[in-house]
Simulated scan of single mutants.
Amino acid sequence: MNNQIAIGVDVGGSHITSAAVHINKLAIVEESTFSFRVDNKATKDEVLENWGLAINKTIDSISLDRNLEIAFAMPGPFNYKMGIGMFKGNNEKYESLYGLSIPDELSKYLNADKIDFRFLNDATAFGVGVASMGKATTYSKVVAITLGTGFGSAFLQDGVPQVTGDNVPKGGFIWDKPYRGGLGDDYFSTRWCVKRYKEITGKKTSGVKEIADANNDSSKMVFVEFGTNMAEFMLPFLIKYQPDLIILGGNVSKASKLFLPALKNKIEDAGLHVDFEISDVLEEAAIIGSAKLFDSYFWEQVRNTIY
């Protein structure tokens, strides 16, 4: 296994980041991290070429042989078992990759003779990563939530994603569950904050940071609503799962001091006692979490649950 080193890749809507990971230590190899901006509406060849640029930089930065193991933290919709893009009809990202086998096509752009590819949902990869480091390792049942351009989730027990069973939603996903005439993803993301602030003030903003920096009654109202709504939406899932810890990551979580009190209060009022942690290692955690697919013990636990 290349001396227990695999490459982890985090695919975002506007960038790709690649790094080598020590599997035994679950730590990123120094000076192996490279990021490139990507136009997610570009042709498949342009997208894959840019992905290849980042990954090849990582390959060149460290002494890896020509047989590589590469794991991706990939946004959905995606066929994670087969490595096939399912982005058709998605106006935000990577429609040109619809129906494309990433292992077959990306290999053409990589400096390697033989590559073993594995794929994991990006929010799940973040959850696996953060559950494997720091404070979270002392908790058994963890729910990881990513709040950014979209709303991601993962339910983990002893570091392993839970994707089936009566106490978790299928796949561990709740972004697609109905809420107030829409979906969870419509309410717990950057675009809801921007939309709600404009409804209240008539002002258009660039994102959550600008709203938080405004620090006025309107911005405070937005975040209190955000936290209250999020608790209301998540409570049925949390009551079923009974987590010990909830970890929040993503750009919206950087404003957690403004919405976390409302979120915590409503959850506590429902009789659920759970700790919270705000993570500032979203990308690093996703890279480590995806690379962990090449930990043989972990892989045996999850290989049959990836679809």
Rank of each mutant, 00 (worst) to 15 (best):
L272I: 01
T124K: 11
A136E: 09
K114R: 15
A270M: 00
T190W: 04
G250K: 06
D217T: 15
K108Y: 08
K198R: 11
K292C: 08
P261E: 02
E300S: 09
L293D: 01
P161L: 14
E199K: 15
A154Y: 08
A112Y: 07
T58D: 06
F298K: 00
K57A: 15
L106Y: 06
Q242S: 14
N79V: 01
D185L: 09
Y98N: 15
A154R: 07
S96R: 06
K220R: 15
V21H: 07
P169S: 11
S296D: 09
L238S: 08
Y297K: 11
E210Q: 10
F298V: 00
L260Y: 01
L68F: 05
I59F: 11
L26P: 00
K44L: 11
L106A: 06
A291S: 04
F298T: 04
G148H: 03
T190Q: 08
S132D: 02
M221Q: 15
K93H: 12
T190I: 13
P169Q: 06
F78K: 00
F126I: 02
S189F: 13
Q162A: 12
K220P: 13
N265Y: 00
V224A: 12
M1A: 14
V168W: 08
S63A: 10
L245N: 08
R37A: 13
I145C: 11
I84C: 02
F87H: 01
A131Q: 03
N24F: 00
G227K: 04
E95V: 09
K114E: 14
F237C: 13
Y297S: 09
L248Q: 10
D244L: 07
Y241F: 15
E46C: 03
F188D: 05
S32E: 04
Q162G: 07
P243S: 04
F151I: 13
D166V: 11
G202E: 07
Y139F: 11
T137I: 01
K220H: 15
L110T: 12
M86H: 10
I288P: 03
K135P: 01
P261N: 02
F119Q: 03
V224S: 14
D275V: 02
R37I: 02
L147R: 11
A71R: 08
F72Y: 02
K81D: 07
Y94S: 02
N79P: 07
I246A: 07
K170D: 14
